[in-house]
Design a protein around this nucleic acid. Structure first.
Length: 279
DNA sequence: CCGGTCACCTGAGTGC
DNA sequence: TGCACTCAGGTGACCG
């Protein structure tokens, strides 16, 4: 489900609700989503104070008292929602975790497809985890020139590279397709074929699009929602994502769908300079 | 290092 | 109605 703007929105909402609150209980209803195991997750989180909630790429990081962390990845369908106290009938379908805070608020973790997971990590384990994840820098942390230099050092096609979290942290399928369209670059272009000017332009479009998407609280395409159930608004600004067969906003030609790196890909074959074109 | 395929899951939509 | 099939915002393993 969520990419950088959606996770950023969720993190801000979680921080507003949970920062400074003690976790009175963590109820785990689906053992397999807990990492490294249920006992560690419950043991580290239950009774701890949530000092703040932060984002690293698409990961949600709850900073806990004593330096421990609860790290969450929502994958495709994970969500945090403001819930209700447990009732005897058990949790609603697809709710796998319930956090009861010391002010009586309840946070639910819901995940239809159960791809996501929650880690309980001590301070030291978190450092190791972060090193192993080897996340690339966020687009905002790079200058256009640094981004261009990073691109030039890589082989392979531009779209899968932008999706690679070790190259750049936070982009997903929607924002890659939108950024490549905005920059006039075809998703099949080899990364090393981009001129420095094209690479700088691409960086500029990525940052511009992510900033605007964060301002609009992300894209609600299917069922992404913030913790109160409100959706985002950036889907109304999409130029190509999910618009196969519609007219290109630039040239009026038909937008295409292809598969790149196993992902559905939306682009304009006329506006976006392809791998076989002379630049 | 790179690309392709599959696996992890459930649900929505489409076509017959 | 039912069934078969495709697709979905993510990522990691495995293989050539």
């Amino acid at each position: 489900m969520p990419e950088l703007p959606e996770v950023e929105t969720i993190v801000r909402e979680l921080d507003a609700v949970a920062a400074g609150r003690k976790v009175d209980r963590l109820d785990l209803f689906t053992a397999k989503i807990a990492r490294p195991n249920p006992d560690r997750l419950v043991g580290l989180v239950q009774g701890a104070v949530i000092e703040g909630v932060e984002r690293r790429a698409k990961f949600i990081v709850f900073r806990l008292s004593g330096g421990a962390r609860m790290v969450v990845h929502l994958k495709m369908t994970g969500k945090f929602l403001l819930g209700r106290p447990l009732d005897p009938g058990g949790p609603p379908k697809h709710v796998h975790v319930s956090l009861t805070l010391d002010d009586g608020q309840v946070l639910w973790y819901e995940d239809i497809r159960r791809f996501g997971f929650l880690w309980g990590l001590s301070a030291e384990e978190f450092d190791d985890w972060l090193a192993a994840a080897a996340l690339g820098p966020e687009p905002f942390q790079l200058s256009a020139a640094e981004f261009a230099e990073r691109l030039g050092a890589r082989r392979g096609r531009i779209k899968p590279l932008l999706l690679n979290q070790r190259f750049l942290g936070g982009l997903g399928n929607i924002y890659v397709d939108e950024s490549l369209f905005a920059a006039g670059i075809h998703p099949l272009r080899p990364a090393e074929s981009l001129s420095p000017a094209e690479a700088r332009r691409l960086h500029g479009e990525i940052v511009r699009i992510l900033d605007e998407a964060i301002r609009l609280r992300g894209s609600t395409v299917n069922d992404y929602k913030g913790i109160t159930g409100a959706g985002g608004e950036y889907q109304h600004r999409h130029q190509v994502y999910g618009k196969t067969g519609e007219a290109s906003p630039e040239c009026g030609g038909l937008l295409e769908r292809l598969v790149v790196g196993g992902r559905g890909t939306h682009c304009c074959p006329a506006c976006q300079i392809g791998p076989d074109s002379e630049v």
